[in-house]
Amino acid sequence: MVRRRVLARQLRLLREEAGFTLEEAAPKLDFSVSKLSRIENAQILIDVHWVRGMLDLYDVGGDRWTELVELAREANQPGWWKAYGLGNNSYIAFETEARRVHIFSLGYVTGLLQTADYARALMVAVPVRRTQEQLDNEVAARVYRQQRLTSADNPLQLVTVIDESALHRTVGGAEVRQAQLDHLITLAGLDTVTLHVLPASAGAHAGLASGFTILHFGDLGEPDMAYVEHSLGALSLDKAGDVARARLTFERLSSDALDPAESLVLIRRLAGR
């Protein structure tokens, strides 16, 4: 999805640089104006043959031509999550392409730091009908996502603020909670993980309404986006004002939270270490 958005933005810029309006370019490509608009807004899959035709019309050649055709191929590749029987999960697609994520967790430990048993207990608690195979696949996919925290080739930098209430909640029973706390202690030692705990003593804070995520895409050139999960679904926000507000909220939460060393002391205490 991210690569489709990058490609779509590049194709729109190339059309504008070539001096074509949507209404002028569409008939020359045998597209309707609405179809070309959907392509440029990443609302549909972009066929490689369409990209070749657009690049020819916009007089793009050389390395740029090769680069964008290859990007079109990549944008049409099925995501790794398809192997787990998952459909077009937009959040996983965005996280897969992100270079850094900032996550505030309110009611539970964020997915990138969950044990398999903890993740399973959370999924079972949600009133969504799943077969046993579907449940197993979703848990396996969640654990698979965590590999990027230790990847040498494609690391993901995670900065997270966890509300202390999430650490006290006995998700899946006492043993599962204990294992989850131990897991947090281990992951907090990774170079890719910066973990803050927002203590109960902070009182009312900027994130009381919900947890949220901010995704940064590094050299892909894709604008940052915010993502909010709630009890009835999820919401992606990419307008500059919305993302700026999310950044400000995260900064306030980080400021109110314990620093990583203090956070680790608290987690160790809760784990009985």
Rank of each mutant, 00 (worst) to 15 (best):
A93N: 06
Q10P: 06
I162R: 01
D224M: 10
D242H: 10
Y227N: 01
E97V: 05
R142H: 10
D59I: 07
L86C: 06
L14A: 03
R273L: 08
D136C: 14
S201V: 12
Q146P: 15
F20A: 01
D136N: 14
R73Q: 13
I214P: 00
A8Q: 03
A8D: 00
Q157I: 05
Y227W: 11
G189A: 13
F250M: 05
V60H: 06
H102C: 12
Y84R: 04
A121G: 12
Q134I: 07
L135S: 07
L86K: 04
L187S: 13
S255W: 12
E222Q: 15
A240L: 09
R64F: 06
L57C: 05
L13I: 15
H196P: 02
Q146W: 12
N76I: 04
S34H: 10
S255M: 14
E95V: 13
V171Y: 01
R52T: 07
R4L: 03
R169T: 00
D136G: 14
Q43V: 03
S236Q: 08
L266C: 08
R252A: 11
R268M: 06
E24W: 04
D63Q: 14
V109I: 09
A209V: 10
I214K: 00
H205Y: 13
H183T: 04
S231V: 08
G272Y: 02
R9E: 10
V176H: 11
A261E: 09
Y108N: 10
V265W: 02
F20P: 00
R15G: 02
K35D: 06
E175F: 12
R129G: 09
S255P: 07
L232D: 11
T213I: 13
F20G: 00
D59V: 13
L220T: 07
S32T: 15
S254G: 14
Y84F: 10
L29Q: 03
A140V: 04
G211Q: 05
L158H: 06
E251Q: 12
M123F: 11
R73L: 13
I267T: 00
L156E: 07
V143H: 10
D182K: 15
L112Y: 12
A188D: 03
I39D: 01
W50L: 12
L112G: 11
I103A: 03
D224E: 15
T115M: 13
Q10M: 07
E97P: 01
K239F: 09
S263I: 00
V124G: 13
G61V: 03
T150D: 03
L184K: 04
R5H: 15
L68M: 08
H49A: 15
F250E: 02
A152W: 09
R130F: 11
A257W: 02
M225H: 00
S201D: 11
G211Y: 09
V6S: 05
A179L: 05
N137V: 02
V139M: 08
P78T: 03
L71W: 10
D59N: 13
L57W: 06
L7S: 04
T160A: 15
R15Q: 00
E16W: 06
V124D: 12
G87H: 13
E95P: 15
R129K: 14
R177H: 10
A121S: 11
I46D: 00
Y91V: 01
A246K: 05
P78A: 03
V161D: 02
L158Q: 05
Q157N: 13
Q10I: 10
R142P: 14
H168A: 04
V101D: 01
L253D: 01
S151W: 07
L71G: 09
A200E: 14
